[in-house]
Each structure stands twice: as structure tokens, then as C-alpha cells.
Design a protein around this nucleic acid. Sequence first.
DNA 1: TATAAATGTTAGAATAGTCTAACATTTTTT
DNA 2: AAAAAATGTTAGACTATTCTAACATTTATA
Lengths: 215, 215
Amino acid sequence: MTLTEENYLKALHRLSQNGESISVKRIAALLEIKMPTVNSMVKNLSEKKLIKYEKYKSIELTEKGRKQALLILRKHRLTELFLKDVMGLGWEEVHDIAEQIEHLQSDLFFNRVDEMLGHPQFDPHGEPIPDSHGRLPQLKATPLNLCQTGRKYQLSGVLNNDASFLTYLNSVDLQLGSQIEIITIQEFDKSMAIKLNGKTKTVFSALICQNLLVL
Amino acid sequence: MTLTEENYLKALHRLSQNGESISVKRIAALLEIKMPTVNSMVKNLSEKKLIKYEKYKSIELTEKGRKQALLILRKHRLTELFLKDVMGLGWEEVHDIAEQIEHLQSDLFFNRVDEMLGHPQFDPHGEPIPDSHGRLPQLKATPLNLCQTGRKYQLSGVLNNDASFLTYLNSVDLQLGSQIEIITIQEFDKSMAIKLNGKTKTVFSALICQNLLVL
DNA sequence: TATAAATGTTAGAATAGTCTAACATTTTTT
DNA sequence: AAAAAATGTTAGACTATTCTAACATTTATA
């Protein structure tokens, strides 16, 4: 796979994260290239069975494509952690370097990085690190009130089906698969300051947290 | 500069090391590409003032080109040392990885590597590591008998002009600029087992060593 | 020194990845 | 549902890097 193809796969994976469908326009915006360029690359990736694509339809990663993307993500996140914990760089400094190192072809190198870091499962942002087979750490659904600050979760279920509860979820645009990031937890009442889908900030009471299952 | 251009510069620098003149054929052989490809890249590098080139003449790096090459070499050698000393990889394993990492664009990264290694001046092969301005460690010419095992030196002068001495040097094909690598030093008579220009092995008596000035 | 061999160069084509301009389809709005 | 807007696609061009085939020059040899 070329460096460019790897970057497309990474972008595709990222766009598939928040549940929205993947369009040529969104890929173009994320990678800062023009739509016709994306279009030709999409055909290329489709021929290589890394994505599922039909004219005018929305795009999806295949299992093969998703695995490749996760392997790159693994290299990226391990590298970020390495740059920070082993080399002492600041968290804000590591991303650009990791963007380059993630494309290295060397199992030896990344296995050693993994080993030096003690086979971490999450990076310091709470993002999970795929294993060397491209599998994400297996997580059991947990009620949000038992979760930690700084990690990112996805809504996987609810423990209450009252109309008033579900209506509330709709009103804040919270759906299965929505991303929930815990900013802070109030000591006093266990309410949580939350960022939804990387955008909206809100506050969940302890009661709401107890009824949200996340991964 | 593109990755390909960097690799050409590195090759050019390497070929300029042992004093022989640089030909299209030798570049092609080293990089394992065809001569016409080299030819067009040579024109490109020439336009960028990185090399001096005229049709059918031999090729030379300009000061600018040499500096660029040394900066890449710096990144390569620092990386090798880092992979070995910090990450515990074997010396035979580090080259291929360093070939990739040397192309990273990040002063931050390489400065930190340099710092973690204590600003080394030589890699474990005895090869000098250029500084961040592309300057090689300043060395004074030293009589060979005062030099260390494992380092590579270049003949920079002689301390004896007897015909018999110079004839001997010719007979082993030792000229100004020739590379001299000290394999071992005999404890008993201080004679040295030597590798010349990376090829021929021979032995120099202590008397010969005392009369050879190297850098 | 003439010829042969080696080396170097040019011309023209292929691939990957990018672009702009023009056209097509789908989605949204009125 | 018709018109307008948004999105997607095609066609054709450009750059970087590579190649093969053909031709030119230099170097070595007989």
C-alpha cells in the first residue's frame, strides 16, 4: 500500500467513526484535496477491495479495509505514546511526528515500541489502541457513571426505556453510536460535563449517567 | 526535497567518499535503477544547484548538496544509535528502519534523539555524525598508531617521504583519501590489522602506523 | 589509430497522484 | 413537481519517477 492510500484509509476510518455516512465531499474536506481526486482514489481502493463503492452511493470500508486502517491507527497511537512517555515530548507536539512514523514498514520497530510501553490498550486521550491483528480492545458495555474522565466512549445501550428519558436523549441528539467524552466529573453530585460527538458540550446528571451504557 | 531526491543525495555523498569520481553508471548501480532514470534526476538536481553536472563529465556535489546529504546522514546515524542504545535493537536490525526514519521532517524529533544520546560524535561503526548544521566533527590529523580500533579513518598525510615507504604505500594501493579501518591492534608489537577502502585486508607494522596521518 | 566496448543521452511511454473545467445526478427548496 | 443547490463524475492535463529502445560519445583494445 502506498502512503497516500494509507492516508485515505485512515480518513475513511475516521469518518466512519461517528456513524454518519461517508461521502466524497467529506473525504475531500478532511484530506484537503479536490473531489475528483478523491473520486479516482475511491475507484482504486474499490478495485483493491478495501472499500465498497458504487456510483453516487455512500462509501463503506470493507473488513479488509477496516483492518488495514486499524493497523495504521495502532502505529499512530503507539507512536504518540512513545514520543510522549519515552522521549518526553509534549502531547501537543507528537501528532505531526506520529503522522509520519505511522507509515514506517517495520513490525520489529512497532513491536518494540509496544513492548517498551507495556502493551498499552489506550492512548492518553482515552482512544483505544488496536492490537497487532487490527482488533480493538474488547470492552464490556459499562454504565457511564462508572467511567473515567478523559476517555472517549460510544453509546451502546440504555437501561431505561421511559419515554421521558428517550425524548431527552433525542433532544440532545444522543443516539446509539454517538461519541461521549467525559470532560469532568463533579465530586459533589457525580454529574458529568460531557462533550457529544466531539462538538456539543452538556451536563448529565448522575441519574442519566446510570442509565447510559457505553463502550 | 522529495524522498527520492534525498536518496540520490545520500548515494552521491557515499560515492564521493572514497575519492573516485561519480558516474551515472555508479549511481544507477548503487540505487538499482536504470541509467536514463539517473540521467534525468541528475539534470533535476543540477537545476536545483545541488550538484555540478555537464554532459559526459563526472558529477560532483555542490556545497549546498553536500550539506543536505550530511544532514540526512546525521538523521540516519542518530537514528541507528537510538534504535540500538535506547530501543535495544541489534546492530544488524537498525539499518533498514533508519533508512525510513531518516526522511522524517521534524527537527524536534531529531534534536530530542540527539539529546537523549548525549550529542554523540560517532556511531558504533566509528562513522562520524554530522552536527545540525551539516558539519562533520572537527578532527586533527593523527598518526595512525594513536588511533582506536573499530573507527574508520582517511589518509590525510604521511610523516616520511622515503621512496621505499611511498613505494610500499603504492603497492597496497594506499593514497591520500583512502579509507583505513582498524580491525585489531596487536598488543605485543602494536601492529594493526587493517581494512583498506572497505575491501583489502592487510597488516601495518607499528613503524608504518607512526608514519601515516589520518583524519 | 580504427574498431569495439562501455558509458551516457534523448525520446517517448507508463503509473500514481494531483488539478481544473465541464457535465451528470441527487437532494433540497420553493 | 419544477427549479435551484449541492454533490458526484468524467475528461483531460500536469508533475515526479520510473522504464525501454534507439542513438551519441568516450574509453579501451586490437
